[in-house]
């Protein structure tokens, strides 16, 4: 894989807004001068891939969105054996060599999901306020060790009896300084900060690797 390709892994529980974040990030990567492609890992259908293609029609080519089946194991597909995702990424880069940013969206999973470093340079773990304010305290490698923790759907916190301040405070407490970003993906709130942080993390990694 070309070192100049930024590979972003977006994982997290079912329904937290991974697809919405992916769709919100693509135009921002384009505005930042990057050329993104998207690989979704649907559990059972091509629903996410179709949704991304539909929402990003006219923004990126539909061929730049691929759905990959995961054999009923979304965490296996991005951690233990990322073979099929790596192959899909290589095929996309062969077909569209101008792509310099690959977004891998994992299938919805549980708190143990992590991305293989062989697949993603920057691992983003997504919670949302409806998971409950206790969720950051429950930990798990995605919450504590991902490069960026996103707490999405901040707009509905009040309706699901989640104290956002508590959720954010606990997230920072378990992450030892690693970034926590609050978003409302559908309205775009916080997504620019997420995009900037992804690029900054990647550039910092590359700087370390060069050094």
């Amino acid at each position: 894989m070309n070192d100049n390709v930024l590979r972003v892994g977006i994982g997290g529980p079912v329904g937290t807004g991974k697809t919405a974040l992916t769709e919100a990030l693509v135009p921002l990567f384009l505005a930042a001068g990057r050329t993104p492609g998207v690989i979704t890992n649907d559990i059972y259908t091509q629903e996410d891939a179709l949704h991304v293609r539909r929402e990003l029609a006219g923004i990126i080519s539909p061929e730049c969105v691929i759905g990959v089946e995961t054999g009923a194991c979304p965490h296996t597909a991005v951690r233990d054996d990322p073979t099929m995702n790596l192959a899909a990424g290589e095929e996309m880069l062969e077909r569209f060599p101008q792509i310099d940013t690959l977004i891998y969206e994992s299938g919805g999973d549980n708190l143990t999901l992590t991305f293989s470093p062989a697949l993603a340079d920057v691992f983003v773990f997504v919670l949302d306020t409806s998971n409950g304010q206790k969720m950051p305290r429950k930990g798990g490698p995605g919450i504590t060790e991902s490069d960026i923790l996103v707490i999405n759907k901040v707009d509905i916190a009040q309706y699901v009896r989640t104290d956002l301040e508590v959720m954010e405070r606990d997230a920072h407490a378990v992450r030892e300084g690693r970034p926590v970003i609050l978003t409302n993906a559908l309205e775009g709130m916080g997504v620019q900060k997420l995009c900037d942080t992804i690029i900054a993390r990647w550039e910092a990694q590359r700087g370390r690797n060069v050094a």
């Binding site: 990959v68 089946e69 995961t70 054999g71 194991c73 296996t76 597909a77 233990d80 054996d81 990322p82 073979t83 099929m84 192959a87």
Partner: peptide
Amino acid sequence: SAFPSGFYAMS
């Protein structure tokens, strides 16, 4: 079966 051949994703 733990060898990363992608077999887990095939039926």
